[in-house]
Amino acid sequence: MLTEPLPYALETLRFPFPALAALAGRLPLGGGREVALASLLVARLAQGVAGGDTLPAAERASRAAGAKVWLASLALPATTRVPFARCVESTTGTPLQVAGALRSLVAAAGAHLDGPSVQELERLARQLAGS
């Protein structure tokens, strides 16, 4: 059995939010699924601010503008609509601002998400706060 990768083999890609994607796939159509999809979108946007993977400011602003339009089309619960919007807007700022917005989003939407999904968002918030 080989223990080291072959020199021509590609590095295995790892999707950073498997619990959020799995939750969105398994929930029935409606509010819960839309909260999970919106959380996945916000997590992907926030990841563009984290660590060495930082996207240019113009790209982050463009992504945030598109995400706002998409979020407006969702039937999100009233208590989560503002935290999602703030989180999307924060992705044009500093990692610390995004971490704070993610934490308030988890507090507002945590009841609609399962444990592993909440842990993924909290891990991302800790990563952003440490940046």
Rank of each mutant, 00 (worst) to 15 (best):
Glu120Cys: 12
Ala111Thr: 10
Gln97Cys: 07
Val69Met: 03
Gly130Tyr: 00
Ser131Pro: 03
Ala72Gly: 09
Thr94Asp: 11
Pro18Val: 10
Glu122Thr: 08
Gln47Phe: 14
Glu59Asn: 09
Leu128Val: 02
Ser62Cys: 06
Leu10Ile: 05
Lys68Gln: 14
Arg14Gln: 15
Trp70Asp: 05
Ala75Gly: 04
Leu37Val: 06
Leu121Gly: 04
Gly51Glu: 11
Glu122Ala: 04
Leu124Lys: 08
Ala108Tyr: 00
Leu105Thr: 04
Phe15Lys: 10
Arg81Tyr: 02
Ala129Gly: 13
Leu76Asn: 00
Ala38Cys: 09
Pro16His: 11
Glu11Ala: 15
Thr80Gln: 06
Gly52Met: 06
Ser62Gly: 12
Leu37Trp: 09
Leu6Ser: 01
Leu37Asn: 10
Gly115Ile: 01
Thr79Gln: 15
Thr54Glu: 14
Ala101Asp: 03
Thr92Phe: 04
Ala38Glu: 07
Ala107Leu: 12
Arg63Phe: 09
Thr79Trp: 00
Glu34Lys: 08
Asp114Lys: 02
Asp53Pro: 03
Arg14Met: 10
Val98Leu: 12
Glu59Gly: 10
Gly31Val: 13
Ala101Glu: 05
Met1Thr: 04
Glu120Asp: 07
Ala19Arg: 08
Ala38Gln: 07
Thr12Asp: 11
Ala19Lys: 10
Gly25Pro: 07
Leu124Asp: 10
Ala50Thr: 04
Val35Cys: 10
Pro16Phe: 13
Val118Ser: 02
Arg26Thr: 11
Leu102Trp: 08
Met1Lys: 02
Thr94Gly: 10
Gly30Pro: 07
Pro28Ala: 10
Ala101Thr: 02
Ala75Leu: 06
Leu10Trp: 12
Leu13Val: 14
Glu120Gln: 15
Leu105Ile: 03
Asp114Ala: 11
Gln97Leu: 14
Ala107Ser: 14
Phe17Thr: 08
Gly51Leu: 13
Pro7Thr: 00
Ala108Phe: 01
Leu45Trp: 10
Arg60Gln: 09
Gln127Pro: 00
Pro28Met: 05
Ala36Phe: 05
Arg63Val: 01
Val49Thr: 14
Ala65Arg: 15
Pro5Val: 01
Glu11Gln: 14
Leu45Cys: 09
Leu105Val: 04
Phe15Ile: 06
Leu45Gly: 12
Arg60Glu: 08
Leu41Ala: 13
Glu34Ile: 03
Ala38Asn: 11
His112Gly: 02
Pro5Leu: 01
Ala108Glu: 01
Ala36Met: 04
Arg123Trp: 04
Thr3Ser: 07
Ala24Ser: 14
Ala78Met: 05
Ala99Tyr: 08
Ala61Gly: 15
Pro5Ile: 00
Glu4Ile: 07
Arg14Ala: 15
Ser104Lys: 05
Ser104Glu: 13
Leu102Cys: 09
Glu89His: 08
Ala72Arg: 13
Leu71Ala: 01
Arg123His: 11
Thr79Lys: 14
Cys87Thr: 15
Gly52His: 07
Thr12Ile: 13
Val42Pro: 08
Pro7Trp: 00
Gly30Gln: 07
Ala85Lys: 08
Gly115Thr: 09
Arg33His: 03
Ser90Ile: 03
Arg103Pro: 00
Thr54Cys: 11
Ala108Ser: 15
